[in-house]
């Protein structure tokens, strides 16, 4: 399954004094099975773009195609888009409302009109996926849980709809390091199991670690696109946009500035580990500590 955005422009509150064009002429194809990272400075239109992927927002100009079909054309089943493209908002725990975790996770499948038995099965499956299969937890109030757990419940609520594409708006924002790592591992494992992932992130380390492709936005337009390796080859460009490069890249740049030979294309921790190891071994021969 493939979603394509064609010349998408979105203007909020058009015709009012508060009118604001959030994205301009965006062309983007989300390929089946990829892990796409969406990066850019705050306010550059990432969330607006994300809400176009499942048809929550309608483009002011341009089209959004799901397998070649315009999702805003008359007679197109919106529920189908909502089911196929799961959108996890920023701070999704703020959307919890039911008395029990199970009921909240079951909200989506219920809206799809599934039978009770199927809903219960999907709820169990989704809770298992997010690692919340502890006994008794499903019958607790979602408001009694910890922040990280609440976020995973909200995530389960989207997974219970069995989306083929998962769009995540800053899924790790505001979590403690352990919950953060758990969340990223969860997303990564969903991707490995075949879900297409679109993730908005401010952490270049996470982008380098997980993404197969990255799209950089500035002032509502796509300015760079490519594999993370290609994107991070332009650190000055990223810095000008108020963005960053992975910390490993920065380490490499510092070492080179100090006159220490180290390879250019290092973005991930494992790569750095190998490079440093060979540096250390090479250096050891000259009697360095």
């Amino acid at each position: 399954m493939q979603v394509t955005l064609e010349h998408v422009t979105h203007t909020y509150q058009p015709g009012s004094p508060f009118q604001a064009t959030a994205i301009r002429n965006v062309n983007l194809t989300i390929r089946s099975g990829e892990f796409l990272a969406l990066i850019g400075h705050t306010g550059c239109g990432k969330s607006t773009l994300a809400q176009h992927i499942n048809g929550l927002l309608k483009p002011t100009e341009g089209r959004v195609l799901l397998d070649g079909q315009d999702i805003h054309q008359k007679g197109f089943n919106k529920k189908e888009v909502r089911q196929k493209v799961g959108l996890v908002f920023q701070y999704p725990e703020h959307q919890l409302f039911e008395e029990t975790v199970a009921k909240d996770v079951g909200f989506g499948p219920k809206n799809l009109g599934l039978p009770e038995g199927e809903i219960a099965q999907r709820v169990q499956e989704a809770l298992d996926k997010v690692g919340l299969s502890l006994p008794g937890l499903a019958e607790k109030s979602p408001f009694e849980l910890s922040g990280g757990q609440m976020r995973r419940v909200a995530m389960a609520g989207v997974l219970a709809m069995r989306p083929e594409i998962l769009v995540l708006d800053e899924p790790a924002a505001g979590l403690d390091p352990q919950s953060r790592e758990d969340m990223l591992q969860l997303i990564s494992s969903l991707h490995r199991q075949g879900t297409t992932v679109v993730m908005i992130s401010h952490s270049m380390d996470d982008v380098a670690r997980f993404a197969s492709r990255a799209v950089v936005m500035e002032h509502g337009t796509v300015v760079m696109e490519g594999a993370p390796e290609e994107i991070f080859r332009h650190p000055e460009e990223l810095e000008r946009m108020g963005l960053d490069v992975p910390s490993v890249c920065k380490l490499g740049m510092r070492l080179r500035a100090m006159g220490i030979e180290c390879p250019q294309d290092i973005f991930r921790e494992e790569q750095a580990e190998l490079a440093l190891l060979s540096l250390w071994k090479g250096g050891a021969g000259h009697g360095a500590e």
Binding site: L56, K79, R82, Q83, G86, P92, H94, N111
Partner: peptide
């Protein structure tokens, strides 16, 4: 919007 994304009407 978040609830609409979960199919709410």
């Amino acid at each position: 919007k978040a609830q609409t994304a979960r199919g709410a009407d």
